[in-house]
Write a protein that binds this DNA or RNA. Structure first.
Lengths: 208, 208
DNA sequence: GGAACCATCCCCCAATTTGGAGAAGCAGGC
DNA sequence: GCCTGCTTCTCCAAATTGGGGGATGGTTCC
């Protein structure tokens, strides 16, 4: 049946790997097309196995799962990755999502949880705990506190997009000199001396 | 009991508003401190009511819920916002999360779902459907395809952080001329002529 | 072996940007 | 009224930028 969902598993723990494989193979619509102990092995066979979904352990010997996802996404952009993590809510899971994973399950997930995660990914969802979801949205929510004025914040935002002072002046409807003046005021308040430093500080303080 | 969680509700539909209030007031650890039909009203009373959590409708008459969250976060940065949305998975919910909401429920959620959402927010989670979660992570995942070489991508990433060509040269361990050479090549491939245009194009194409 | 990239470096030039220092007009707060 | 802070503007010297070239090794592919 070519309609089966092709699944590859990358997991160094044999019990977990075989357990997942047995479960998935017992279900008609799934087909395990690859079982790998290392990321390196999975990468070379990626093209040949052509999985729709890869269950990827993060803590692998050699190349870790995060770097592996980056590599494998380059080989097949349509493939989707589900993290297999030991810890429920780790920073690593968050990093894996940034690298291109679309969800995750834990090693001791029960059958239903595993199958649910796969089904949700297939139907366009991204299964994750609410704690992970919070980490994700926190990462792009900005702070409410700022030492800068409203105008300076506007200038800073334009600066962050890579605009020069004259482009900022044009978009804000002020003269070049004024936009430069705001920039200098920003530097002073953020205690920096260059554009790069200002942007680094602003990102660190979640102003942008 | 000052230990009760103070909750404000902003919702123009009377039935929904009163229904939520009745439910929450029936529970000992919650206390409804504000019931508002409009965002404007909620904003002026924000400081006085001092809620821990605000249940915020998105589709309000006058100021919408998204703008309201932005305003109210400025008044009380510690307050947390839960969206009340009609549609399960809309673009608006995503925008609200960007504006600072930490989760959402639907108008026809049952009691358990509402209480679960509040509890999860209080315990550091961000309740949302897996579809919304997918929208969120998709927004910061980058494309796997790029017309640029590996080195050019590195240069582009540094450029995006606001570095000058000499700073890029230093961090990549090459001469200024080489980094400028890469930049020129990037411009040529992206068909642009300035740093700003290159960054716009790169963002649009999800290269960065 | 040759073609086609890639990454690295070098030169020249003019226009623009940048950072630093200083200052004027205008509002709001006490 | 005075002071502070915000927005606005001016001059200068140094650095960056974008646009022309061109050169060297190193691949990878045919």
């Amino acid at each position: 049946m070519s309609l089966r969902t092709r699944i590859a598993i990358v997991e160094d723990n044999t019990a977990v790997r075989e357990g997942f494989a047995t479960l998935l193979n017992s279900i008609d619509k799934y087909m395990v097309v690859g079982l790998h102990e290392t990321a390196e092995e999975a990468i070379v066979l990626m093209e040949q196995e052509n999985p729709h979904i890869v269950l990827m352990d993060i803590g692998l010997p050699g190349m870790n799962g995060i770097e592996a996802i980056r590599e494998m996404r380059r080989i097949n952009a349509r493939c989707q990755f589900i993290i297999i993590s030991v810890h429920e809510d780790s920073e690593l899971v968050f990093q894996a999502l940034c690298a291109g994973a679309t969800g995750y399950i834990t090693k001791n997930s029960n059958y239903m949880e595993i199958l649910n995660a796969i089904n949700e990914v297939l139907s366009g969802g991204a299964p994750m705990s609410t704690k992970i979801a919070r980490m994700v949205i926190s990462s792009f929510q900005t702070s409410t506190y700022t030492p800068l004025t409203k105008r300076e914040m506007e200038v800073l935002q334009e600066l962050a997009r890579g605009k020069s002072y004259s482009m900022i002046a044009k978009s804000l409807g002020i003269t070049n000199e004024t936009s430069r003046s705001h920039i200098k005021s920003i530097y002073s308040k953020l205690e920096v001396n260059t554009k790069y430093e200002a942007l680094e500080k602003a990102k660190k303080d979640k102003l942008i």
